[in-house]
Design a binder for these strands. Structure first.
Length: 430
RNA sequence: GCGGCUAUAGUUCAGUGGCAGAACGCCGCUCUGUGGCAGCGGAUGUCGUGGGUUCGAACCCCACUAGCCGCCCCA
């Protein structure tokens, strides 16, 4: 019979790798907590319209990468509603922000999330159809200071701290400003005009973008088109005074914190909702990501809440590709040392199994990590298993059961000791 | 969605038309309270799936599926 396998672009995460995932998530939670973020969990699927309006109809994500289906609910109102597995989480967070009237507190909201997202793309290294993102959003009514450049810098500084604490080496922060919604519109129009007479010289994709979303022409890596792209108007010349000042303040705060960055005038994120600050953290070649060298991306979205029918609520956020973060850590880490158990108990003969399990219970209740062998195992087999799994092995036979003096082998030094049961916990911890 | 490469044991791979292989790992024995070394022995398997060519296919051809790499795009 044909075996059933994980579907294309999805995968199982198994031990010991899951330990690394937990470590990454625990580190992120710890850093977020220090900056005053609370966790939000939004549904894995939402109304398709949310992404169409929030992320943008013309983005690749919405136009060709979503898992969308029609609901077959029993209620008339459910039937036929178009639903979609979330391809990213910012739109969902802002939807929840509006739905629960979080802006009524007048306070800045700082929310983080960790969870799977779904995009129907061709799988590749560091790109899966179910992938995990660790993200955070800072948003609130304008009077909460949510549009302040201080928040942009704080988020970027937090990310630098997180990557440092995780031990990511050689990360690079690329920074840009795409201005206000108006600036963006004017710039977009200027690009369209500048492209009109030359676009026929460009690749097919760029010709299409020149019409639908000229900003994304800047992202193009097509080598033949670079000359034209370099000659296009620069976004910096279209920023209004307020956006220019905002960008200057972001940079000044980063300088003050000693966070290094490079201004990339052509960094225009692909999602429609971005305004002003946009950024991306990348890692050097050879960090395990192939050409997918962006670890995380994000930016400011001052108009998103209104686009979704909510109150004015400027915000800034980011999403870390957790799968890519893990790949980078695995590539950068010298052979990840596998965590060993504190002890392996080797019962000598099946008659000792009950006593051995009881001993294991005591040790586990004392907080030790313990595996129990089996009295059926020959001693040699116990040794081999114990050496793989644990730092020490406790021999539990008739003598030990009778005298309460246990024989303990320490694999790290290869020495053996007799330890009274009352001192066993502290001996094993040492 | 487009292009290239690949698919053989648990793993890494060899095998280019004639008996399905190696290394590592695994299991057993030497060896029933002291392992890691060594010696001996054992099991590895729909050769990705389906079809075709051939006396004969892991090998050649076609299709499909999956994985990897790149493009597009993005985290």
């Amino acid at each position: 019979m044909a075996t059933i396998k994980a579907v294309r672009g999805t995968r199982d995460l198994l031990p010991p790798e899951t330990a690394l995932w937990n470590h990454v998530e625990a580190t992120a939670r710890s850093v977020f907590a220090r900056y005053g973020f609370g966790e939000i969990r939004t549904p894995l699927f939402e109304a398709t319209e949310l992404f169409a309006r929030g992320v943008g109809e013309e983005t690749d994500i919405v136009s060709k990468e979503m898992y969308t289906w029609e609901d077959r609910g029993r209620a008339e109102s459910d039937r036929g509603q178009s639903l979609t597995l979330r391809p990213e989480n910012t739109a969902g967070v802002v939807r929840a922000y509006i739905e629960h009237k979080l802006s009524d507190s007048g306070m800045l909201e700082k929310l983080f999330y960790i969870g799977p997202q779904f995009r129907r793309e061709r799988p590749q290294r560091g790109r899966y159809r179910q992938f995990w993102q660790i993200g955070a959003e800072v948003l609130g009514p304008p009077w909460s200071g949510s549009d302040s450049a201080l928040r942009d810098a704080e988020v970027l500084e937090m990310l630098a701290t997180l990557l440092d604490e995780l031990g990511i080496k050689g990360w690079r922060l690329a920074l840009n400003s795409v201005g206000s919604a108006d600036d963006r519109k004017r710039y977009s129009e200027a690009l369209r005009q500048a492209l009109a007479p030359v676009k026929h010289l460009m690749c097919e994709d760029n010709q299409r973008r020149a019409e639908t979303n000229p900003l994304r022409v800047l992202d193009s890596k097509d080598p033949n088109d670079q000359e034209i792209i370099n000659g296009l108007p620069k976004i910096a010349d279209f920023l209004d005074e307020a956006s220019r000042e905002h960008f200057e303040q972001v940079k000044a705060a980063l300088d003050a914190c000693g966070v290094p960055y490079t201004v990339e005038p052509r960094l225009v994120r692909g999602l429609d909702y971005y305004t002003r600050t946009t950024f991306e953290f990348t890692v050097p070649d050879g960090s395990g990501l192939g050409t997918q060298n962006a670890l995380l991306g994000g930016g400011r979205y001052d108009g998103l809440s209104e686009m979704l029918g909510g109150p004015r609520a400027p915000g800034i956020g980011f999403a870390i590709g957790e799968d890519r973060l893990i790949l980078t850590l695995q590539a950068q880490a010298a052979e990840q040392e596998q965590k060993k158990l504190d002890a392996f108990i080797a019962p000598m003969g099946v008659g000792q199994n009950p006593g051995a399990l009881r001993l294991a219970r005591e040790l586990r209740r004392a907080g030790l990590t313990v595996e129990v062998g089996d009295g059926n195992f020959r001693l040699k087999k116990s040794f081999e298993a114990a050496d793989k799994l644990a730092r020490k092995m406790v021999i539990f036979g008739e003598d030990e059961a009778a005298t309460g003096i246990l024989t303990v082998k320490d694999f790290s030094v290869g020495e053996q000791a007799k330890v009274p049961r009352t001192e066993l916990v502290s001996f094993l911890k040492s």
